[in-house]
Computed example of a mutant assay.
Amino acid sequence: MKPIDDFYYITGNKIPYDSLNLIQLYFPIIGQDALSLYDYFIHFFDGGQKRHKLSEILNHLQFGMKRLEDAVSVLGAMELLELYQSKGIYYFRLKQPLSKDLFLAHPAYRRLLSAKIGDVAVQELNVQLPKDAHNISKKFSDVFDNLESASVSVQPKPAPHFDLENFQRLMQRDGLRFKDEKADVIALYNLAEKYELNWFALYGLAKETAIKKVISPQRMLVKKQQTAKVQQQKQQTETFSKEEQIVLREAKAAEAELFLSKIKKARRARITQDEKKLLEELAQMNFLDEVINVMVLYTLNKTKSANLNKSYLMKIANDFSYQKISTAEEAVLKMRSFAERQAAAKTKQVRSAKSNVPEWSNPDYKNETTAEELQELAEFKKRTLAQLRKDGE
């Protein structure tokens, strides 16, 4: 976006200005710039009658372009504004703030507000019904029993992207917990929206990637990102050797602790507490179990020990983290290239050592010196001897 760019308001997009909910609910989250921009759009709305320049907004609000872009992003994220573009022209569509009930029922919005003004202040915003009060209002079906003759159009209220209440009920059943409820719920909402997951699918992902029964939104994200790579890596399957395919199959089949336990059992050893802590540390680095398993297997084979060498394993982990390795296939290819580099370096070292040995020491050496070269060599020797005699006199 540039100041000279044109924009229109969307035709027929006139909405009432809800200052109460904007100030009470949205302002602590969106901040002054976004609120000022929303106010500007409300008060300068012209029904899409004419073209405007973005510089008009900048001049009136005394904004720079960066502040305008940030404010547009925030309003869009909070569903107060939609930005469209067609043939180089921008179009702004305004949206009404949610009612207080719907806003506070939204799991991510409520926790964003709590993070800004505190739980007590948010609690005070709730509608306070009298104790023991019962809702005796008539239902729609009680009044409009003849649907064919009823001409009333009822707009269903928008539902949150995922049902937090049911999500938490399954958490309680399975013994899962949040590390930081406010931050985790916001992260879960982002995942649900980004990958269009319902609450049940989201819970399955959370359970699969939890660390010691603690939900890890970061590992959930890595798992979803991994899916995008699977198709590419399926095409690469033929490039893996039989041994590598066995490693991939085993690495994907077991959790990290179970995988290590199986290797240990084959070596007549047991997992130590330090090794359990090391596996958890790798999980906290957001590695999935299948990647951890590849690192563990390579470390044990390389160090030729029944115990994990933490220093060696963490070197691999840091490299994997930097390279953003998120699948077992990527891990195997990375370890293969590492082994190939080591082999090439060793070969180069051997060749370098051989180059210091005179060629004539080789039993297969053949002297291919020409007659001319022999004559030049003889004259060089004669000149050198003459020079030595002269220096000695």
Rank of each mutant, 00 (worst) to 15 (best):
residue 217 P to F: 07
residue 272 T to R: 06
residue 265 K to I: 12
residue 239 T to C: 02
residue 269 A to L: 00
residue 279 L to V: 12
residue 255 E to I: 09
residue 248 L to N: 06
residue 237 T to H: 10
residue 283 A to R: 13
residue 224 K to P: 02
residue 269 A to P: 05
residue 276 K to D: 09
residue 273 Q to D: 07
residue 275 E to R: 07
residue 263 I to M: 05
residue 249 R to H: 09
residue 267 R to P: 01
residue 226 Q to H: 12
residue 219 R to Y: 08
residue 246 I to W: 07
residue 277 K to E: 09
residue 245 Q to I: 00
residue 283 A to V: 02
residue 284 Q to A: 04
residue 225 Q to I: 07
residue 241 S to F: 08
residue 228 A to H: 12
residue 283 A to E: 12
residue 268 R to Y: 13
residue 257 E to W: 07
residue 257 E to Y: 01
residue 226 Q to E: 15
residue 253 A to K: 03
residue 255 E to N: 08
residue 247 V to F: 13
residue 254 A to V: 06
residue 225 Q to L: 15
residue 266 A to M: 11
residue 247 V to N: 09
residue 240 F to H: 04
residue 265 K to Q: 13
residue 230 V to L: 15
residue 280 E to K: 13
residue 221 L to S: 08
residue 255 E to K: 14
residue 238 E to T: 08
residue 252 K to E: 14
residue 228 A to E: 15
residue 220 M to L: 06
residue 263 I to T: 02
residue 234 K to Q: 14
residue 246 I to D: 09
residue 239 T to P: 00
residue 226 Q to K: 13
residue 282 L to V: 00
residue 250 E to T: 11
residue 255 E to F: 11
residue 281 E to P: 00
residue 271 I to A: 10
residue 243 E to V: 06
residue 236 Q to P: 01
residue 225 Q to K: 11
residue 257 E to H: 01
residue 222 V to Y: 02
residue 264 K to G: 04
residue 244 E to K: 02
residue 222 V to N: 04
residue 257 E to G: 02
residue 232 Q to H: 14
residue 254 A to E: 13
residue 225 Q to H: 13
residue 280 E to A: 05
residue 231 Q to H: 14
residue 227 T to A: 11
residue 233 Q to T: 11
residue 246 I to P: 00
residue 260 L to I: 06
residue 229 K to Y: 15
residue 233 Q to Y: 15
residue 254 A to C: 02
residue 286 N to E: 04
residue 240 F to S: 05
residue 281 E to A: 06
residue 275 E to L: 02
residue 261 S to Q: 11
residue 254 A to W: 12
residue 237 T to L: 12
residue 222 V to K: 00
residue 237 T to I: 10
residue 279 L to S: 04
residue 232 Q to D: 14
residue 228 A to C: 09
residue 260 L to C: 07
residue 271 I to F: 08
residue 259 F to P: 00
residue 243 E to D: 07
residue 240 F to A: 03
residue 266 A to K: 15
residue 259 F to K: 00
residue 262 K to T: 13
residue 221 L to T: 11
residue 241 S to Q: 08
residue 271 I to G: 06
residue 274 D to T: 08
residue 232 Q to L: 15
residue 244 E to H: 01
residue 225 Q to S: 04
residue 249 R to F: 11
residue 271 I to H: 06
residue 262 K to Y: 13
residue 221 L to E: 15
residue 280 E to N: 12
residue 224 K to H: 01
residue 236 Q to S: 12
residue 239 T to Q: 03
residue 220 M to S: 04
residue 253 A to M: 03
residue 261 S to Y: 08
residue 255 E to L: 06
residue 256 A to R: 03
residue 240 F to M: 00
residue 220 M to C: 11
residue 278 L to R: 00
residue 280 E to R: 09
residue 285 M to E: 05
residue 256 A to C: 05
residue 284 Q to H: 10
residue 252 K to R: 15
residue 279 L to R: 01
residue 262 K to D: 13
residue 258 L to A: 11
residue 221 L to Y: 10
residue 281 E to F: 07
residue 234 K to E: 12
residue 258 L to K: 13
residue 260 L to T: 03
residue 248 L to M: 09
residue 258 L to S: 08
residue 223 K to Y: 14
residue 248 L to V: 07
residue 277 K to H: 12
residue 250 E to R: 14
residue 282 L to M: 10
residue 254 A to Q: 10
residue 234 K to F: 15
residue 260 L to A: 04
residue 267 R to W: 10
